[in-house]
Design a binder for these strands. Sequence first.
DNA 1: TCATAAGCGAGACGGTACGTCGTGTCTTACG
DNA 2: CGTAAGACACGACGTACCGTCTCGCTTATGA
Lengths: 201, 201, 201, 201
Amino acid sequence: MSGTAQRVKAASPWSPRETELLEVTLQLLQEHGYDRLTVDAVAARARASKATVYRRWPSKAELVLAAFTEGVRQVAIHPETGTLRGDLLALGEACRQQATQLAGTIRAVLVETSRHPALQDALQSQFLEQRKALIHDVLRDAADRGEIDPSVISDELWDLLPGYLIFRIVMPARNPTPETVRVLVDEVVIPSLTRNRKANG
Amino acid sequence: MSGTAQRVKAASPWSPRETELLEVTLQLLQEHGYDRLTVDAVAARARASKATVYRRWPSKAELVLAAFTEGVRQVAIHPETGTLRGDLLALGEACRQQATQLAGTIRAVLVETSRHPALQDALQSQFLEQRKALIHDVLRDAADRGEIDPSVISDELWDLLPGYLIFRIVMPARNPTPETVRVLVDEVVIPSLTRNRKANG
Amino acid sequence: MSGTAQRVKAASPWSPRETELLEVTLQLLQEHGYDRLTVDAVAARARASKATVYRRWPSKAELVLAAFTEGVRQVAIHPETGTLRGDLLALGEACRQQATQLAGTIRAVLVETSRHPALQDALQSQFLEQRKALIHDVLRDAADRGEIDPSVISDELWDLLPGYLIFRIVMPARNPTPETVRVLVDEVVIPSLTRNRKANG
Amino acid sequence: MSGTAQRVKAASPWSPRETELLEVTLQLLQEHGYDRLTVDAVAARARASKATVYRRWPSKAELVLAAFTEGVRQVAIHPETGTLRGDLLALGEACRQQATQLAGTIRAVLVETSRHPALQDALQSQFLEQRKALIHDVLRDAADRGEIDPSVISDELWDLLPGYLIFRIVMPARNPTPETVRVLVDEVVIPSLTRNRKANG
DNA sequence: TCATAAGCGAGACGGTACGTCGTGTCTTACG
DNA sequence: CGTAAGACACGACGTACCGTCTCGCTTATGA
């Protein structure tokens, strides 16, 4: 069955050494933010050489993106609570927590992607696609249970829930709370997904 | 009357020379993005000296924020189409167009605000509050017309429309189209705002 | 009169700040040798920035050459002892001492000149020409005194005395002594300069 | 008989593979000079691995010195023209040609020897001693023929001829010509070697 | 009419990070 | 076992940018 609780997580494309470098990068990123992070510091803390870093990732930007992607890769799990509302709340809350923690990194990655188109593809394929698959899984399960009409599952707005939350996190002084997630699910996402049923009902 | 089409635009706090510097900054920002923008380049293109720039704005970050604020100052207009849907579409499309043009700048400002809390306040008061007031105007008009229940106007999700659009613009390779705005209004925002009426109706 | 004891020293082409940088460079050069010398160290000891150094001299090589040239500039003095032999001994001994001290620097400069033709010109005009003028002065005085025939003053071998001494210094384990200078003057240079007179005498 | 034209060349201490590496080194040395020469490039052009190079010569410096020594090993021949002047001209011209070709290498070796005393001994024994023996041979033959007084053969200035020529080659923009060699022999070396005879004659 | 000051252009400066490159050591896999 | 291939730590190179500073020149008034 498609909805079985399963890790969507792909095998890590990185060697142990590379994973170590990315972990150090993520650490320093959280500690100091993007531009206080120096490649020298990454190399030093990992007891590596700058050349070793630059051999893998041709710029600080790509290093940070890789670290970010690796950092979020392992949490793309299908919640499987049994109801659409439960799944959406779980998903939203997970997204909120994760993104809150990575706020600085997300901002940094966004800036960098605007410069290097290569990073856009990386972000697209390594991050967004994972999320999209996950949400589609949740919606398909809900359709299987008859909670929603399958026709409301579109490619246009699938990322409304995580997208708006990320906006809120990235926008200073608008940090979302668990209550924000609840309101968003109950008053926006579900009304939108069930708009046809209610008209019919 | 509160709904009259009026420019919310405040008088520019900048002298002509300062405005010129900000325009140059905005230009270069669009051309090269935040980190490729150098204060030297701004000074050079404006035939000014770096000291002249730094006398006004104590850091590159504040310069960019000022340029951004100046760049968006003039477009906060109440659409006044006569229907909620029309107003929302107009607002959304305006936001979409403006933000698309300023994508790089927005990314830059987001990063900078995360570092300098002072910039958060500036962004908050000079940008967000304007938008919030505008949307509340639109919603109040709709309530006055009886299109929606005033109780759905909350402080939690007022920025859903611009927020998600900005997310889409800032996230590479997910640029929204006019159709995106339409779907967002028709299938998300309006269903959310009218969720009670339908249940009642 | 042409033979008056006078400083051949030209005015330094360097500003005080530049002179300071060159002095630091020369110090570190003597302390650590050419390739243990780092531009960072020069900048640090001079409390300057690397950019400040590189603004003047586009590479480490040119910096070192400039320091070397400056280091030897101030010692090009006409000895004026009254006899050809005395002048030559004084000149030779001065050259020997100075070059011994700068041995490492000389070797370094020689290597670098082979790479950058621009350095060749610099070495030529700023160093060799000074020496040539000095030796010609000494020989002309000797001719004036009737010690030698003016016709032996040629452009081909004017640098025999300093040249061979520099060879000896630069060639490891062949460091010249004061006795070397004496023998060189008495048994080579003077016999060569007076070869015609003796044939006549 | 001591004066027979004979190759002083010792059997090469290197295996064919090693000789090949040294030849590549010498090539690259002539092409790019000492610092532009990289051990990686030597290994690459010889289709060898860096480890293979470093197993033989523990540093770039020793590699270059070995290549240099190998490069000059084969030319230490006693000219045997029958006259002192002829021998000196032949010797000087051979030295001039060889050293001109190896100019960059000579500069490189000089720098390196100043750092590693071990290289000094190598240069001393493998290069200078050969030359010294050769010149002493020439002078002894001349003494045997009665051209010079044996007492002028000293250990102090035996290398005047090659030494000054090397100085001229190494000093940029002072490249010696065949005429330089002639003048040096006729106006300096021979007058010096025959200074006593003329005084007596 | 001239002088004294404030603003400006030009750009040097200290500091710091970037990304590159070369050396000499080391490991892995092949023959 | 020696070798080719090449990753690795270390560390210097030369570049770029930020934010501060000093220099003259201009302009705009006050004696």
